[in-house]
Design a protein around this nucleic acid. Structure first.
Lengths: 224, 224
DNA sequence: TTTCTATGATAGCATTACTATCATTAAACA
DNA sequence: TGTTTAATGATAGTAATGCTATCATAGAAA
């Protein structure tokens, strides 16, 4: 039996890889549902245990604490975007077209082909928009970075940088633009939905078409 | 006796305005020191009470909870940047110069003239870089927004937008660029300090000179 | 002088964030 | 086939967190 894509995330993210077991996949699946519903602050392992009819102690056998679980989900998301970007730009030669595909993936975060049954990608995207930044805005960031817990984000940024440099090989800020594109996509979606005075785009437009247009405008101007 | 600048923040941010009383100012002053030291997650009212030799209940008379205290600090910071931007660009006519001043203020967040004795602006800036986004990444964001708790951020973005539009009156994304400039400044500082693979700039450079150059490069390209 | 307001002191309580121990069941192994 | 072993469940417990409530007191305002 296949459980969709399986990413090799850093070992230290979890005590036991949840992708390998039935309970682990249930934890991931329902953590996404529950964090989306309650928000990360109100989410607890006790509530998750009740939802999946397991126990707190069983969840603690997979994750040290809820921050690690969030970081696992975030890393999965980073890996997933990276995978989508690579596979969907692979056979394209036009560098402008590649960047448009990249922007589309970053903003819409969805795929017609790649699915993992226990990961609701649409909900995971919403969580990333609201809570993703909390994964690295932590006092242990340096230590976690030394343990390689942000390797997936760095890979994603590296992939994006290369696409940007393909388009303009002399551009001096490829990594900063890459990370900013990712953060900007999430932030502008959040602002459009919750603090519209901070943007010029609307989220009610079909599928973030507005935000895509803006991102393309920004990126191609900067790269020009 | 004067206690420096006093901003009229939204009433709902605090139960009693901490800027008005000795204890209130002590709460603000030491909250900044303690959040910087412990990080927002490990910061508690109990620890703060111990530090100022007061009690939890006294602090609860000023703020509903630590999230409100963070939002108060964040709002103070937004107001402060807004004030600095307006006062330091007031007598400048060149729109390009104005934007350079604006970027300088957003990245360095300091002033030679305006000081408030109980607010350590340098530490507050560091807190904003690390924890600022948590002020609005909350499940109650819509309700808090309806109560006007983000008015200061909106004002700041409006001020920046106007400066951008002065430079290029036909630019279609002034608010999005304004909010992104602010978020990007904070993020790129954070990345330079903690996740350098995500940037091309160094934080060890004097006073973020690198980041300023990059921000100018980005903003003038986009506005061109 | 009285009243009001701000603060302090103390207690208490439900929830959170774990840790530890022991039992059970199913898979792996020999 | 019997026996380890590994994964999960069940239960208990504990310190810290995030509050709320009550009463006392000191100083300012009326």
């Amino acid at each position: 039996m296949s459980y969709g894509i399986r990413f090799d995330l850093n070992d230290s993210l979890s005590l036991r890889d949840p992708q390998d077991t039935e309970l682990g996949r249930k934890i991931i699946e329902n953590a996404i549902l529950l964090i989306d519903k309650l928000g990360f602050e109100a989410f607890t392992f006790k509530k998750l245990a009740a939802k999946i009819e397991s126990t707190e102690s069983s969840i603690y056998r997979y994750f040290d604490n809820k921050h690690m679980l969030l970081l696992f989900l975030t890393s999965w998301y980073w890996e997933w975007l990276n995978y989508l970007i690579i596979s969907e730009t692979k056979n394209i030669s036009d560098s402008e077209k590649k960047i448009k595909i990249l922007i589309n993936i970053m903003v819409r975060a969805k795929s017609d082909s790649a699915h993992t049954p226990y990961v609701n990608e649409a909900l995971l995207h919403e969580i990333m928009v609201k809570e993703g930044a909390k994964s690295y805005h932590t006092s242990a960031v340096d230590e976690e970075n030394r343990s390689g817990l942000f390797a997936s984000y760095k890979e994603l940024v590296e992939t994006i940088s290369q696409l940007l440099l393909d388009h303009n090989p002399t551009f001096p800020y490829a990594h900063s633009l890459a990370s900013n594109m990712f953060e900007m996509a999430n932030n502008q979606i959040f602002f459009a939905e919750h603090l519209p005075k901070l943007t010029d785009v609307k989220s009610c437009q079909d599928d973030f078409a507005d935000i895509i247009d803006m991102m393309e405008y920004f990126v191609f101007k900067i790269l020009s």
